[in-house]
Amino acid sequence: MNADITLTVDGRERSLTVDPRTTLLDALREHLGVTSPKKGCDHGQCGSCTVLLDGRRTLICLALAVAHDGAVVVTADGLGRGDELHPVAEAFLDADAYQCGYCTPGQICSAVGVLDEAADGWPSAVTPDLAADEVVLDRHEIAERMSGNLCRCGAYAHIVDAVSAVGNGAVR
């Protein structure tokens, strides 16, 4: 039984009819022609489909579209303002933090999420003091927090450079 849903994707309201089986990722890629989020594994094991879903970094290959009627989706294509790239995207260009580019939109959405989460004081598995209110995003912290985004080209060292360059809580 198909369902009618409405999504706000990169600032645009989009209405569509979906099969209950359709994931949010397939809804974007196959129904709306929004191909910025990528399909790398389709099982939550690679991070390529990361977007900001209602403000949080999320793997939308594991999200059913019918369960997210009314959601606000921001992809890597919707992060910037107008023609201006988001500072994280700029940092990826500066650091050459990508090669084939397939995991890149997911990496960038994830990095934006990391910066938000750090600004909110969320610890990670490598945070030395769990009780601390402030997070210092050193390389170790960034690498741990970005580990849900696999990159087969092996751009990790440059990805950490890029996220470091944007800085600790500099972007909200």
């Binding site: 939550g44 991070g47 990361t50 970094r57 594991l62 990391v114 610890p123 769990l130 009780a131």
Partner: peptide
């Protein structure tokens, strides 16, 4: 949780990834 049950916070943070923990 971080103050009174730090082992639980650490276990959660050791699981999956940042995205999956958000979901």
């Amino acid at each position: 949780v971080r103050r009174d049950y730090p082992g639980l916070a650490m276990a959660l943070l050791a699981g999956a990834s940042g995205q999956l923990r958000n979901q």
